[in-house]
Design a protein around this nucleic acid. Structure first.
Lengths: 123, 123
DNA sequence: ATTAGTGTTCTAGTTAGATAGTACACTAAT
DNA sequence: ATTAGTGTACTATCTAACTAGAACACTAAT
């Protein structure tokens, strides 16, 4: 991962989002160890303190658990992961609907607009 | 409008987005005068300098035109407004698709997920 | 006991966004 | 000419996010 962050969102949140996606997709399993703070900092090209915040935030949300001296691990609590996926999906859809509504689109137009976009993308 | 900004995005951009939506929805017509910098600052509960940045940014994008001593006006160039609406819509859909893809959803699931959400919303 | 790898904490400094206050310049109406 | 309303410009200050560097504390393996 290089430095291609959007300036609008704090980097530590962006990294947390990215990790959350990986976990939700099943790319990282429950109980699996995340890269160490220092390792992840190098991978992401940011300061270790930034990763520290990312991990702290994710621990606060119950997504990961840290064991001092051992590392940071994806939670074994499957329910938390299930809820996380559900919440992330709802958030995305909600914000999509809200944004389209702000532009004046009807529910019908949202669906047809999406379908047309996906059809175009497949080529 | 009160102070209910998201912390993640610069306020001057959020206000620009909001105004753009109003224009695209037709709530503000081509040629119409926007509130003055000072007036808009009071309405939005922010500093005039912040609005100044909003208007500068929107002028840079060709959405508005400023006439010194007279005010800031929605551009008369209908093509610009048409392109703006199209661009905003595409951006929203694109980011929705990208986010859903990141969570591991297929194109089918995106559409059915959206439909289910809208169905629920109608109640 | 020592070492390597880990999370944790602290202080200091930088930057962008936002605020605050003031002043200047242009336009239209009086 | 004056005035009110407008955009524009400038300096100073504040804060959150981020960076930088160092130190501390715990764990497991040797």
């Amino acid at each position: 991962m290089a430095k291609d962050f959007q300036s609008s969102k704090p980097i530590y949140i962006q990294i947390a989002d990215h990790l959350s996606s990986q976990i939700v997709r099943g790319e990282m399993r429950a109980g699996e160890k995340l890269p160490s703070v220092r390792e992840m900092a190098i991978q992401s090209g940011v300061n270790p303190n930034t990763i520290q915040r990312t991990y702290s935030e994710m621990e606060r949300m119950g997504i990961v658990e840290t064991r001092r001296g051992q590392g940071t691990f994806v939670t074994e609590n499957e329910q938390v992961l299930k809820d996380l996926k559900s919440r992330l999906q709802t958030d995305i859809i909600h914000s999509f609907v809200q944004n389209m509504k702000d532009l004046g689109y009807s529910q019908e137009e949202m669906i047809t607009g999406l379908e047309q976009y996906l059809r175009r993308e497949q080529e």
